[in-house]
Amino acid sequence: MITIEPVGDWNWEAEVSGDAARPSHAVTLAGAIWDILAARELALPPGRLRFSVRSFSDMRDVHVSLEDRPVESGRLPSDVAVADAAGRADRLKGDFLVSLRIMCPGVWWESGVRYRAEQLFAFQVDIWKSSLAVVTLETYSDAWLTMDTREREQLAVHAVNEPRLRAVLDDITSLMGVPPEPGDSNRHATPTGRGFADPRVEGFAYSDSWGTYDVPARARRLRQLLPPSEGEYEEITDHPVCYFTVRRGDQVLGYVWASVGEDAAGFEPRTAAGNAAFDAGAEWVLRLREAYEEGLSAIDALGWLARVPVRPEMGCIVEDTPQQAESLDALEDLSGRY
């Protein structure tokens, strides 16, 4: 499953001085970490970079800021905008917190198939007061676990993916010269110095953590993109659902659905597609609201959606006839798993 919040995280802290304490070193270090991830297809372009320099005494005082910069490779110092921001940071005098964060698309393997997620990993490099470098690595997939976050055994998935994570942790440890400090056990899993504790032995802190937490979190994230509404279809159902797949180019964005047995309909964003899934999902929900205002039943609204023209950024329905899922939970599972 691909999650909204990290499945686990790791931290490396190393004292620095001289050139390694300059703000521009955060860029060099981030480039090296990108390359470590990229060597295992755990960082693929385009990543998204954020860079900032803040006064240590007042974090609201931002001296340098670079937002949403695309990352194509580990050669970050050669990127004009990144190099300019780092150069301006190097010329500052005083105590600062330097932060560089990159969201990393990447791939995992399952049943011999290569799947891409737009945020498989994220990492951050912080330099505190020109004396301490801190690297934080986060993963948003359970492909490294022997059981997924819905408590289903996945030994074959673990076998092909876990060594890639372990190699990344080892390489970042060699780069930093200090061992990682695993993050705390969370709702999804328990990180260790070499990966994750085996949930078959340790157990999970919560039953079906993905269904319990990620499904509501996805719904809230989608709802935040929508204006208030006085009338619309119900968002949940206990009945089977019919659905259409929404695709833009070669990327599946999600699934627009309607209940077979009651007036419920909605959109399930494909988590692996990232922000694009939620942006498109909001547009499809707005179309469902139009159908509701016209008095269409949920099932009729689904058929109407297949006929009306849509904007390219929304993606398009790819099937001629709707597919059927035994439950909304099954469709949610599909949208979070692949």
Rank of each mutant, 00 (worst) to 15 (best):
A330K: 11
G193V: 12
V71L: 11
V27G: 05
G112T: 08
R116K: 15
V113H: 12
D238C: 09
A85F: 01
K93G: 04
S335H: 05
P309T: 04
D329C: 03
L165I: 06
S55H: 10
T245Q: 02
D142Q: 05
E313S: 08
F123A: 04
R270S: 10
F196W: 04
W210A: 13
L100I: 05
P240C: 07
V27E: 04
R166D: 05
V160Q: 11
L132D: 00
R270G: 04
I172A: 02
L145G: 02
S130G: 08
H63Y: 15
I172G: 01
P6V: 06
S65Q: 15
L37Y: 10
V160K: 06
L76W: 02
R54Y: 01
H188G: 10
R114C: 12
G303N: 11
A280Q: 02
A291P: 03
A280S: 14
S327W: 07
H63K: 15
A30P: 09
F123Q: 05
E110V: 05
S78I: 06
G94P: 04
Q323G: 05
R101N: 04
L92V: 01
P312S: 00
P180V: 14
A89P: 02
F244A: 03
F121Y: 15
R187L: 13
V134W: 00
L76H: 06
T321G: 03
V7N: 03
G295S: 00
S24I: 07
V82L: 09
F56W: 14
I4D: 08
A133M: 03
E283V: 03
R50E: 09
H25I: 04
T139H: 06
L175Y: 06
A43N: 14
M147R: 10
T139P: 11
